[in-house]
Every structure is written in structure tokens, then in C-alpha cells.
């Protein structure tokens, strides 16, 4: 994780960076609240980016990943987009309040970036199986149209990314084991020559999913999701991948 993060009162989100800086983000009940996956993604990208470059934060939410990468001095330019209008407005606001420049656009995946290419694309679109997302607390007032197995949006980003990456560019994407990881990685390997796992983190099943174990069991038996019962709890994972040619 990139330092520590915590939710503050009045819908503020606090992110402590490794360089000692703290970034404050305004958020809203209507947008996705950053999770451990967000910070794991940020940490992985920060460690991998060897030289500064243009960054697209796709599925930016309130802008945490992109703005933090800019705060680390890794962005020659920062672009960000989200399907939520409110998220885009908050990203613009948070960029200004954290002293960073951003081109933020409302966009369904790459629709607003048709003729633009980047050195780094960081994908954080919804990637949880829809049935699970619906009963989880992660998407209370936000959309998660990621398909039955949760792979739809991530696979679309992977498929379209090569058109939006400059030569030598890299795509970073998280895969949650509460989605069809096998399908997503197979798609990445079809589209890119190199796909590597950067980081993986285990999480206990959140309380709001525990009453829905029958659903989770069924989806696991179908091969749609994966989790394990170990150490007296149910464990699922976030894996961060990098893809490039």
C-alpha cells in the first residue's frame, strides 16, 4: 500500500505518500470510495514507472491514483476519465487542491480519448462480478456494469489500450478474484506480448458479503470467481498486472 490511507469525516479521503506528503481528496456518496485495491494499484505503478511520461487514469473515480502519481513527479501530463460526471468534477477539484494539472473528461472507457496515446494507462474501472457488487458495500451509489463475471470492463480496456499506448507504453490493471481472473488474463495475453503480475494482496471477506456466501459458493463452483477458506476466514485477492509489447 502507498503509505496509509483513511477516510476522514465530511467525505474527505486522506492519502499519505511514501515521500512524506499527504494528499487530501474530496469525495462524495455518489462516487466510488477508494479501497485497498486503489492503493495497491498506485503502489505497483509507482514502483514500475522508470521514467516520467504521459499518464491516463481510466476509471479515475475521485482521481486518487493519477493525482498521486503526479505528486510523485511521474507524470509529464495527467489525463483522467470516468463514466461518472460527479467523479470527473471531483477529480478536477482534487487536482487543483493538490497542486496538480489534469485534463479530466467524462468518458465511457476510451470514448473521450479517441485520438490520444499515452505512455502509461492505469485502469481502475469496476471489476467485480455484478451479482457480488450488488450485495457488497463497494458500489452503494455508483454503477458497476462489469458483467456477470466482472470481467467485461477490464477486458474492454485491455482490448482498446493498445491503440492508446505509445511505443513502449504500459498498461496497469487490477484483477479482483471476485471476478473471472482467468478470462481477463487470457484477454491480456491475446492483446499484449508481455503480461506480468506485479503485486498481490489478500483480503478477508467484508462483513456485508458474509450473508451471501451461497451466492459466492455458486459462482466459485461455476468457475466465475475464486476465494479460499483459510485461517478461519474467507480470503479473496487483488492482483496488479502490467501489460506491454
Amino acid at each position: 500500500m502507498v503509505g496509509t490511507s483513511e477516510r476522514l469525516p465530511e467525505l474527505m479521503y486522506n492519502l499519505k505518500l511514501h515521500n512524506g506528503k499527504t494528499l487530501l481528496f474530496e469525495t462524495s456518496e455518489k462516487v466510488f470510495i477508494p479501497t485497498g485495491t486503489t492503493t495497491l494499484l498506485l503502489d505497483s505503478v509507482r514502483e514500475q514507472i522508470g521514467s516520467r511520461g504521459s499518464i491516463l487514469d481510466i476509471g479515475c473515480g475521485i482521481g486518487v491514483v493519477g493525482i498521486a502519481l503526479a505528486a510523485y513527479g511521474l507524470a509529464t501530463s495527467l489525463s483522467a476519465s470516468d463514466i461518472s460526471h460527479e467523479a470527473v468534477v471531483l477529480t478536477e477539484h482534487n487536482a487543483v487542491s493538490n497542486g496538480c494539472e489534469v485534463t479530466a473528461r467524462h468518458s465511457n472507457l476510451f470514448e473521450a480519448w479517441l485520438d490520444t496515446a499515452f505512455d502509461y494507462i492505469v485502469d481502475d474501472v469496476s471489476g467485480v462480478a455484478e451479482g457480488i457488487a450488488a450485495v457488497s458495500g463497494w458500489f452503494k451509489n455508483t454503477s458497476c456494469e462489469s458483467g456477470y463475471d466482472g470481467s467485461l470492463l477490464t477486458k474492454n480496456v485491455i482490448r482498446q489500450s493498445h491503440k492508446h499506448l505509445r511505443s513502449g507504453g504500459r498498461l496497469f490493471f487490477p484483477v479482483i478474484s471476485l471476478s473471472n481472473e482467468t478470462e481477463i488474463i487470457a484477454e491480456a495475453r491475446r492483446c499484449f506480448e508481455k503480461v506480468s503480475l506485479l503485486k498481490q494482496k489478500a483480503w478477508p471477506l467484508p462483513d456485508d458479503l458474509k450473508p451471501h456466501l451461497a451466492l459466492l459458493d455458486r459462482m466459485r463452483n461455476e468457475g466465475v470467481i475464486s476465494y479460499e477458506e483459510k485461517f478461519g476466514t474467507h480470503i479473496w485477492t487483488t492482483s496488479i498486472y502490467m501489460a506491454h509489447n
Partner: peptide, 26 residues
């Protein structure tokens, strides 16, 4: 507790699944 879970899972990976069988470890 989250770090602790990470420790347990990592031990289990390194020990090729045998740590999970040790009930006391958690």
C-alpha cells in the same frame, strides 16, 4: 489484522499450502 492475514497467506504460499493446516497459526 490485515497485515496479519497477509503474513499468514504468505507463509502458506511459501510452505506450499501446509501453513493453512496449522490451526494455531492464526
Amino acid at each position: 489484522s490485515l497485515v496479519h492475514l497477509g503474513i499468514l497467506v504468505s507463509l502458506d504460499v511459501e510452505l506450499e499450502g501446509r501453513a493453512a493446516a496449522v490451526k494455531k497459526l492464526a
